[in-house]
Amino acid sequence: MNDTKTTRTAALAAEGVSIWLDDLSRERIRSGGLQKLMAERGVVGITTNPTIFAAAVSKGSAYDEQIAELADGTATPEEAVFALTTADVAAACDILRPVHDATGGYDGWVSIEVGAGSAHDTAATVAEAKHLAATIDRPNAFVKIPATLEGLDAITETIAAGISVNVTLIFSLERYRGVIDAYLTGLERAAASGIDLAGIRSVASFFVSRVDTEVDRRLDAIGSEEARALRSKAGVANARLAYQVYEEAFASDRARSLADRGANRQRPLWASTGVKDPGLPDTFYVVELVAAGVVNTMPEKTLDAVFDHAELRGDTVSGAADAARAHLDALEALGVSYDDVTATLEDEGVAKFAASGEELLATVAAALEAETVRPS
């Protein structure tokens, strides 16, 4: 099964799913580990977040030299975080550039998030997105912007400036429709400014397993046999309905008009696909969400599980919308409010986003402090 043409990950890619890795570190870049995953596991993209970077900085010695330089220059923790993360993303972009070029920009992307403090500040988000894009200066760098209400306007402005965006923290179908509208509006503004739409890309990161975690918590509180029978199905149902929204939105006259001018579809990306319930198969959020044109970004543990033993059944999304809607209706009938679940998850997601940013700042601040007190 080591032949990349016969592996399970190759079979997944053949179904139209782009396999991205939800992890990045300087050690992975320098050791050739990323290139190995590309060659052997079919990885064609990378997503990152502050927690991933904090874990990377706290392990090993790969960052020691740059941290020493930053400490000598009396960089603030915020400046150091920016320097460390943009350097890693730029390096990963260079490694994935051949994929980007070979696929005409379809894959080969590396994502980096705006700062946690900007989630509810449109102007700050746009300013940071522009700063990140200019600093990394690679055609295959995505700036991640959370899909808060304030984030929608930031998405439009960033896309209108010709910057490619990974929209993150999407939980509800209503918000997803708003994200698509923000993207299309940004494209329309970019076109009006004379920007080549073909160079702008976007993915919409729809979170999956977190939906099940919250819904199952509520079902367990109900405790009935009927409630137990509905466990661990909401995340997949929600994502399958999101795919229906995607197909309908990009078949609209508005989207077609933009496509005629060179615009690309904003692809759905399944995020939070690591299994949190030990009772579920470890490949669950991969094999149940196979459809053409989507991205699945996986932690390495999930990627390894898919490679090793995923039982793929072809497209498991198309034609499943009616059953997915029926499942959400059944939850509502039991008193599990979809709107409350998704609002709760967005609030928690933004809070976790902020906490991750603080964790990274603290990790880098400690590293800088350790360097300044190191004996010469």
Rank of each mutant, 00 (worst) to 15 (best):
K5D: 01
T7R: 03
R8K: 09
A11E: 04
L12V: 05
A13Q: 12
E15T: 02
E15C: 07
G16A: 04
W20D: 00
D22N: 02
D23F: 01
S25Q: 03
R30E: 12
R30D: 12
R30N: 07
L34F: 07
Q35N: 09
K36V: 08
K36Q: 14
E40R: 09
E40W: 06
E40D: 14
R41V: 00
V43R: 05
G45R: 00
I46Y: 00
N49Y: 01
T51Y: 00
V57S: 03
K59L: 13
G60P: 04
S61Y: 01
A62H: 07
Y63E: 07
Q66I: 14
A68Y: 07
T76A: 09
P77K: 12
A80T: 12
V81H: 00
L84D: 08
T85P: 04
T85Y: 03
A87R: 15
A91K: 02
A92H: 01
I95D: 07
I95R: 02
V99G: 11
D101G: 12
D101C: 02
A102E: 15
G104W: 11
D107L: 11
V110A: 14
I112F: 04
G117W: 05
A119I: 13
T122N: 07
A124Y: 01
A127Y: 07
E128G: 06
A133T: 09
T135M: 05
N140Q: 01
V143C: 10
K144N: 10
A147K: 01
E150R: 02
L152K: 04
A161Q: 03
G162A: 07
S164H: 10
T168H: 07
L173N: 13
E174M: 05
Y176T: 05
V179W: 03
L187R: 05
A190I: 08
A191S: 14
S193Y: 08
I195L: 15
L197H: 02
I200L: 12
S202G: 15
A204P: 04
S209D: 13
R210Q: 14
R210A: 13
R217W: 12
S224Y: 10
L230N: 02
L230I: 15
K233T: 11
A234R: 08
A234C: 15
G235Y: 08
A237M: 02
R240W: 09
L241G: 01
A242V: 09
Y243P: 03
E247N: 14
A249K: 05
R261D: 12
A271W: 09
A271S: 14
V275Q: 05
G279W: 00
F284R: 08
Y285H: 04
V286T: 13
V286F: 08
V286H: 06
V287F: 09
A292V: 04
V294R: 11
N296H: 09
P299Q: 10
T302H: 05
T302N: 11
L303S: 11
A305L: 06
V306S: 10
F307I: 00
E311W: 01
E311K: 11
G314I: 06
D315A: 09
S318E: 06
A324S: 15
A326C: 04
A326F: 03
A326E: 12
D329Q: 14
L331F: 05
G335P: 12
V341K: 07
A343M: 06
A351Y: 03
E359W: 01
L361G: 14
V364D: 09
A366P: 06
A367G: 10
E369S: 14
A370G: 11
E371D: 09
E371Q: 15
V373F: 06
S376E: 13
